[in-house]
Structure formats: structure tokens, C-alpha cells
Amino acid sequence: MRNISAKNKKRIVAAIICTLLLVLAIAAAVLLTDKGGSFGAPTLTIETPQKIDLSQTEEVTLDMNISHLGEALYPAASMSIRFDPSKLEFLGLEEGNLFVLDQAGNEFGRILPEWSVNPQQSNKNGCINIMYLDMTGGKHSFNQNLLAEEDNVVLRLNFRLRGSVRPGDVLDLVLEDAVFAASDESQSLAMTTNTLRAKNGKIVVGG
């Protein structure tokens, strides 16, 4: 009887150790395969496109991605992007794939947000000011649940290369300011408060 109970104890200890190791292994695998998405701060990125060949390309489109959002509803967003207007002509925006809520009655759908931008003014002062404002009191807000698993393109920036661009040129696109404003201000994401990180992009012209 004594022997049996000692055996049982050993078995139980072994089982616990195995279970612990398994849990550790699974946790490690999950942590390491995660692309940092859900553990880092929200990051707004201007994606650097592939190198431009001047003889082939005149227009360039750059994706603006966001890694993830917080838990809140974000009914407004804005961003300012500086560029060199002597080398690039800003043509306008193209739709991304980041939706906002479409709350009609009790139904929840999703629609693409309508961003406001003035290309003419942007080309004058070399700064693209983009804004989204939900005028319905929060029915059309950005929300974490509407993010895709990867490739969350907020919007796309469309440029034409000016004649002054030469092979070997590098054209920076710098996020000067960006905000995702939440209904509860304390949950807003902003570059100025370091709650929103920014990663700038560049257009590299092949030499």
C-alpha cells in the first residue's frame, strides 16, 4: 500500500511537470510567432515601396498601415505627412481596407471611412493634412474589432514623380503628427503623447 502511494505520487509529480512544460512550450510558441502585433504600442507606418525605376514608373502609391488599435471607439483621426513638393506631386488618396463601424438601428455593419484631404494645398506647402471625422456621434468609429489579422491599410497615398527626380534620389515621407481620437480622451492615441508610434517611409529611386 505504501509502495503504491509512492508510485502514485511520482506519477502525479511527473504529470504536473509534463503539463507545465507543455504549457510553457505552447506559451513560448504563441509569443514568438506573434508578429508583435498585439503586444506592442499601436504603430502607424508609411510603407516604403519597392525601388522606383524612372523609365517605368511615374506614379507611386504608398500604403499607410496601422498595427492595432486600443479597446476604445475612435470617431476621429488625423495625420500630417511632410514631403518634398519640388520632387513629388501629391495626387490624392486611395481607399485602404480599414473599416469603420456602420451602426444602423441595432445592426452593426462596416463601411470605408471618407477621408478629407486637399491635394492642391498639400502641394503648395509640402504637407498633407488628412482628417476623418464621424459626424454621427460615434456611429461610424474605428474599432479594434474591425482590424484585419494583418495588412491593415488605413489609406493609400498617391504621388507622381516630378521631372526633377533623378536616379539615386531618396524622397522621405515623414509623419509629423497623427491622432486617433477616442470618445474618452484618456484613451486617445497620439504621437505627441507617445501613445501612437510612427514609422516613416521613403521612396527610393533606382540608380
Partner: peptide
């Protein structure tokens, strides 16, 4: 039984090591 447990432990450690090594070698290029 002891053998079985030690085999299991070895397997778990190996799997964990491989998973970690595989993931450390790769980086998030984004």
C-alpha cells in the same frame, strides 16, 4: 514508467527548443 516520463520530458524540451530556435532565427521585417 520512469523511462516514459523521461522520454516525454525530452520530447517536450526538444519541441520547445526547436520552436524557439526557429522563431529567433526569423525576424519581423515589418
Amino acid at each position: 514508467m520512469k523511462r516514459l516520463i523521461s522520454l516525454l520530458l525530452t520530447a517536450v524540451v526538444l519541441v520547445t527548443f526547436c520552436a524557439c530556435a526557429g522563431n529567433f532565427a526569423k525576424i519581423d521585417l515589418q
